[in-house]
Design a protein around this nucleic acid. Structure first.
Lengths: 138, 138
DNA sequence: ATTAGCTGTTACCTAAAGGTTAGCGGGTAA
DNA sequence: TTACCCGCTAACCTTTAGGTAACAGCTAAT
């Protein structure tokens, strides 16, 4: 063997930079508190504005409205206005949203195990261990 | 068959709520612009403060410092201060960080395909299609 | 006729995240 | 001695996210 199969420090750095940039691109598109949540709610059948507001607990009308616009602009959803009577407005996922399934699955699984870990940590340590921060796992 | 294998609307809603809450928990812990980035950089061998600052492009010392503190507080990393000479400070991932690998992988793969899609969309549409927003894929 | 609900929009405001600049204490190299 | 790296920290400021509340146009119900 001469040099195959070993990565130089430079190769490591480049691989790392590439990974960082792809993750940054992903976070730019779907980062923030609400975008994934709205897509998840829509994937489970919620189509109407008020349905979404009820399902995605904590979101305000103003924020829901602006997030829906961004999601539409970015090709994740479409807004459909029926000409019938009464006029009804429905939001629908475009196929592109389904490319997020793997991400949603991974985040959900991790979130579940993380919640369990936090709960374990809280009960195993006494009521007042350290002036930590963070638990919040509703 | 009587009712097996069909989900009621209520079951759908509950499943959706559970999914939303697990994703919300995950985002609470690792959301934001920098936490995952720092963990990725550390997983590729960066241990020193300045190394991290160079690898994670765009982060400022102030923010890096505070994010490292949070990551330590939450059990993702440890700060190791050598007693030797000169005193060196190294940050290391704890095993818990590795539970994020699936999430990082999924985000990275999605980010790559998303970047490709944006580029395709930009070239297929003429130079000035719509007053869109968003591309940014550095 | 009044009221209430749906689907938003607008204006206004606060809070949190994050950037900039400066500097400090300790080391090391010229 | 001077000067520069490292690992921060403090003060300050800008930007962004997001909340509240009011309202508009429509329909359905009372």
């Amino acid at each position: 063997m001469k040099k195959e199969n070993r990565k130089s420090a430079k190769e490591f750095t480049e691989e790392c930079t590439a990974l960082l940039s792809s993750v940054a691109d992903a976070l730019y598109a779907i980062g923030g508190k609400w975008k994934l949540m709205i897509i998840i709610a829509m994937a489970r059948g919620n189509k109407r504005f008020t349905e979404l507001q009820k399902q995605v607990t904590g979101i305000s009308a103003r924020v829901l409205s602006s997030e829906l616009k961004e999601l539409e602009l970015n090709g994740f959803i479409v807004k459909k206005v029926s000409v019938g009577y009464p006029v009804t407005i429905e939001y629908e996922l475009l196929p592109y949203s389904h490319t997020l399934e793997e991400v949603v699955g991974a985040l959900s699984r991790w979130g579940i195990q993380h919640r369990d870990k936090i709960r374990r940590d809280m009960t195993s340590a006494g009521p007042s261990e350290k002036p930590n921060k963070l638990p919040k796992v509703k």
